[in-house]
Write a protein that binds this DNA or RNA. Structure first.
Lengths: 143, 143
DNA sequence: TTGAGATGTTATTATAAAAATTACATGTTG
DNA sequence: CAACATGTAATTTTTATAATAACATCTCAA
């Protein structure tokens, strides 16, 4: 399949909103920046709105963050756009007849869960604020 | 796309080899346990062999681990089968005309790298030995 | 009140990464 | 030599995702 870039694109949207250019944040303008289709942006924004991360009104291009960038974490956005989809996938379809098969995968699932929690903890520690700051520093000095 | 289960399947193979049943570990037998195609198992085993995790001889079904299960980590297997593929993917194809576009994604890439390293550190801490032990404990008591 | 322009939402199509499968060369052993 | 195994490349199928289309609904200003 294609790789999911939903998290990246959703973060892109949030940074775009934070920058607050003098132009209204229409789905068309954001789509141009992300280089994608406006409808896809609207879909992501609907999800972000549903998760309470942004607010919006139909008919108007007035999307804004519902809270400060320092209070929005990468994990909030990940959960919003990816739901419960994990980073690693165990093999659901093994042979149930073979005792080894299913129990190995269930064991692997346990360890994947540990890896997931570790990654999620890290995601919780990264705020939109941090992303914006690093973005600005990239703009000024080229590091 | 489909989700990759290469890591899970490769770990499955390694546990299968560790268990050391009285039957030879042919790709056909392992495939039956994983419920997949023998050629796919051979492909994964070729990768594991190439990474120095197992040894094998063509024509014989004599695959074995090259080192103790406590010296093989989940990360070793991840690197072997997934190469440099990361857990999270930033959006490579943004608008270069829009300063926001590419620099946001480069910034996101930096933070993804941090998340990646955190997850990899965790993966390094999980050994095949630990998986085998947990597997056995699942077999005996049902937890 | 009407029209331009915006979001909201569903459905369909295209893309791409992965597993499944095929085919066959090559190696091993009895 | 025959049966059976791995090694490997090529092709096909599957499937999660992005792209796109279509249209309802909302907002605002002329």
């Amino acid at each position: 399949m294609k790789y999911s870039t939903k998290l990246s694109d959703a973060l892109h949207i949030l940074v775009f909103l934070s920058l607050g250019t003098n132009q209204r944040p229409t789905s068309a303008r954001i789509a141009k920046s992300v280089k994608t289709h406006p409808a896809y942006i609207r879909q992501l924004m609907a999800v972000l709105k549903n998760a309470g991360i942004i607010s919006n009104t139909q008919g108007q291009a007035n999307a804004t963050l519902t809270r400060e960038p320092c209070e929005i974490t990468v994990f909030d956005v990940y959960r919003a756009v990816e739901g419960n989809k994990p980073l690693l996938h165990w093999d659901v379809d093994t042979n149930p007849e073979c005792g080894v098969g299913i129990y190995i995968q269930l064991t692997i699932a346990d360890f994947y869960q540990e890896i997931q929690e570790t990654a999620e903890k890290k995601m919780r520690s990264i705020t939109l604020q941090a992303i914006i700051e690093k973005y600005y520093s990239k703009l000024t000095r080229l590091d």
